[in-house]
Amino acid sequence: METAQPHAGVYIEDVSKSFGPEGARTLVLNHVSLSIKMGEFVSVIGPSGCGKSTLLKTVAGLIEADSGTVKVDGMTVKAATKNKMIGLVPQSPALLPWRTVLDNVRLPMTVNPKANANRNLRDPREILESFGLGAALDKYPGQLSGGMQQRVAIARAFVFDPSVLLMDEPFSALDEMNRDAQRLGLLDFWQSNRKAVMFVTHSVPEAIMLSDRIVVMGAHPGHIAEIIDVPLPRPRTIDVYATDEFRDLEGRVRETLREVMGQKSA
């Protein structure tokens, strides 16, 4: 079994990915390099078709890069997924409607229990309570709001206490008030469980509120156009939205997005 190496967190070097039949392939990711340190929250934002989700799925092991290197805590993606070091939260909560909230979060623990025997498993009840879902343990997904369902999906990703958390627009289906509540809930939990987070979003305020850095991607083909630091102090509360610093950052990110959307090619 591979052991962890110095590259803690996520390490992406010179990754390219194409789709389509031979002779008519479309380049989706073009020599992308990025690192996310342990305890760092990084959002990836950009126009539709810039490869944000493809990059995340490459780190998750759902897609294999054509070339380049991806490491998670110094391990190959294959080794990291085998060792349950990656927690994935998709756009849809993907909860089983016939299982209770508690049983949905327990589900990953019941798959191949022999292989899980020596893993560092977290108590599902404790995780759910930390997400404010202690009163919903015995409820079914259909009895929960969309925001609560997404919180259950996030809680499920923490069962194996992963080193890296990958989140693909998890709040995109929620209205703005619910999104705000879920962002703040995620921040509270993350600030006490500092994982390396890669968070794909289309929302500029969301990226600023959550992140240490924002990766702005351009399209045709997908590439990193700019990486913007977010020096806002932590812990963050809803009051940060009203600060001059937040508004300045929002202006800068939006201007960068306008620039990349005006580009015809890399």
Rank of each mutant, 00 (worst) to 15 (best):
M1P: 12
A8N: 05
I12H: 04
D14L: 01
V15D: 01
G20T: 13
G23E: 03
A24I: 02
A24F: 02
L29T: 04
M38P: 12
E40S: 13
L55Q: 07
V59D: 01
L62R: 09
L62P: 04
I63F: 13
E64W: 00
S67H: 03
T69H: 09
V77A: 05
K78Q: 13
T81Q: 14
T81P: 04
M85V: 06
Q91L: 12
A94M: 10
L95P: 06
R99A: 08
N112F: 09
P113V: 06
P113Y: 04
F131E: 00
G132Q: 07
L133S: 08
L133V: 07
A136E: 10
L137I: 05
D138Y: 08
Y140H: 13
G142W: 03
Q143D: 09
L144Q: 03
S145N: 09
G146W: 01
G147A: 06
M148N: 04
Q150A: 09
R151N: 07
R151Q: 05
A153I: 10
A157K: 07
F158L: 15
V159N: 02
L165A: 09
A173T: 10
L174N: 04
L184E: 11
L187F: 09
Q191D: 11
N193I: 06
K195L: 08
F199G: 00
E206S: 05
S211V: 02
V216C: 11
G222C: 10
I224M: 12
E226C: 01
I227L: 11
I228W: 00
P231W: 04
L232Q: 06
R234K: 15
Y241G: 00
R254T: 11
E255F: 03
K264N: 14
